[in-house]
Design a protein around this nucleic acid. Structure first.
Length: 323
DNA sequence: AAAAGCGCCAACCGCCGGGCT
DNA sequence: AAGCCCGGCGGTTGGCGCTTT
């Protein structure tokens, strides 16, 4: 059956040599656009023939969905989108299409490429398996707070122009506006859930769309308010919330603990964690920001062209991200 | 200036599941 | 029930362009 499918999915015997592959030409794009605008999409194999395209149905479908479809967004992912990808990936793993559903205008291919070229590159740099808990932890400790900061910065600079935004960008602006109004992580998260419908709403369904996460498809996934950016991962919860009844907000707002206490308390820092993460620092070193000059990565930890020109993080920066 | 190396991304591939006959 | 067809998904690859040497 699989062998049969393989043949029928691509082409019939004898047609193989004639079918075009590789990059699409402008003429082919125009043919596809014109045909779909008249007849709609679907039935891709027959569509390809009817449109006069010497391509497989699959190829036509992919070209349309990933490139030609009118609402497809081009260009760099925004910090909000990157943050959402990290957040959703920690929840669902490599379910690219599912993740893409929550980023209007972005395709699964684009998100997959982002993950592979940016995120996994960072894992390689840190010499950590990108699927390991340790790497997820690194993302959540360092990258996501960084993105959140960028979201905040961007929202400050772009909020005045939000009225002319597309639905997709409105989503992210809504999100950042929420954060601006409520910079306390816990309260921000509570606001998100308090104002969210049970199902995730996207711009497709909602005119004033907000990006919001729900426990839509898994009953065992209970989103706790304190789990800022750490949805539903028991292991990660243990890592970050190993002290019972401790909330991110409590720690974030704690004035009774000094910085070091806070960090150890919240992040459960121990020697092996940092060593194994490739950071090569001892706990005592963590006390001394000067001694550290803590380097998370050299390049592209966050895409430099769309977010930040920063290439190095030092320990001073990390302190301010303890939540 | 040229060659080599590298990163990004569009496109392809194989597999799978659902619907139809 | 079995086979066929199709669409969708995640993994992989090849080529282009940029950067580095």
């Amino acid at each position: 059956m699989r062998a049969t499918n393989k043949m029928t999915n691509s082409c019939k015997e004898g047609e193989f040599d004639q079918l075009k592959r590789g990059p699409w030409t402008i003429e082919e794009d125009n043919l596809l656009i014109r045909y779909i605008s008249c007849h709609g999409e679907g039935r891709w194999n027959s569509l390809a023939k009817s449109a006069g395209l010497n391509r497989t149905g699959k190829s036509c479908r992919l070209r349309w969905l990933n490139y030609l479809k009118p609402d497809t967004k081009r260009g760099n992912l925004t910090p909000q989108e990157q943050l959402l990808i990290l957040e959703l990936h920690s929840k669902w793993g490599n379910r690219w299409s599912k993740i893409a559903q929550h980023l209007p205008g972005r395709t699964d291919n684009e998100i997959k490429n982002y993950w592979r070229t940016r995120v996994q590159k960072q894992a390689r740099h840190l010499k950590i398996d990108s699927t390991s808990k340790r790497f997820v932890e690194a993302l959540q400790r360092f990258w996501m707070p960084r993105l959140l900061e960028k979201v905040e910065q961007n929202s400050s600079s772009t909020s005045s122009s939000s009225s002319s935004s597309t639905s997709a960008s409105t989503s992210t602006i809504d999100q950042t506006e929420q954060y601006k109004l409520n910079p306390n992580p816990q309260l921000y998260e509570q606001t998100r859930f308090a104002t969210s419908s049970p199902e995730l709403s996207s711009s497709k369904e909602s005119s004033s769309s907000s990006i919001c996460i729900s426990s839509d498809d898994s009953s065992d996934e209970k989103m706790l308010p304190q789990q800022l950016l750490l949805p539903h991962d028991d292991d990660m919860s243990q890592l970050l919330y190993n002290v019972e009844d401790t909330t991110a907000a409590n720690l974030y707002n704690s004035s009774s603990l000094d910085d070091h206490q806070n960090m150890n308390y919240y992040y459960n820092v121990d020697t092996s964690e940092f060593d194994n993460m490739g950071f090569g620092q001892q706990p005592d070193d963590i006390m001394s920001a000067d001694a550290l000059n803590f380097q998370v990565a050299d390049t592209d930890w966050i895409s430099s062209d769309d977010i930040t020109a920063d290439t190095y993080w030092n320990m001073d920066e990390l302190w301010q991200f303890r939540m």
